[in-house]
């Protein structure tokens, strides 16, 4: 299946070890850049209480929800313990010509 890539931002438009909110159509996503310049994308809302993860704290490959400190692995969306117990959906990411793009052609896997 051909992936439908959606342009998000410039590769340098997000700081290392940080997260960026990305709204597309009627959904919200979170784009991450790790300290070693890898990019990942997940659903944008915490599965525990529907809080925007883009206001949270990225440490290594972990995103921490800003409201209840629920933690997820940004590389695979896995919840890392209460109160986060349901995994996040994940989306393929690529960097091409200095732009970050994510594939939203299907429901996130996670």
């Amino acid at each position: 299946m051909t992936m439908a890539w959606v342009d998000v931002c410039a590769a340098e438009g997000i700081d290392a070890e940080d997260v960026l909110r990305f709204d597309y159509e009627d959904r919200t996503y979170a784009l991450y850049r790790t300290e070693d310049n890898r990019y990942f994308a997940t659903d944008g809302l915490c599965t525990h209480a529907r809080v925007h993860l883009a206001d949270g704290f990225v440490s290594g490959t972990t995103i921490e929800c800003p409201k209840h400190n629920g933690r997820f692995d940004v590389t695979n969306g896995k919840a890392k313990g209460a109160p986060a117990t349901v995994d996040l959906g994940c989306y393929p990411v690529e960097v091409r010509d200095g732009r970050v793009r994510i594939s939203l052609s299907s429901e996130g896997t996670g």
Binding site: H48, A49, K67, H68, A82, P83
Partner: peptide, 13 residues
């Protein structure tokens, strides 16, 4: 400890 973790999450919500 388990139920209090959730109780406290509710306190913050």
């Amino acid at each position: 400890p388990v139920s209090w973790r959730w109780s406290h999450a509710r306190h913050h919500s």
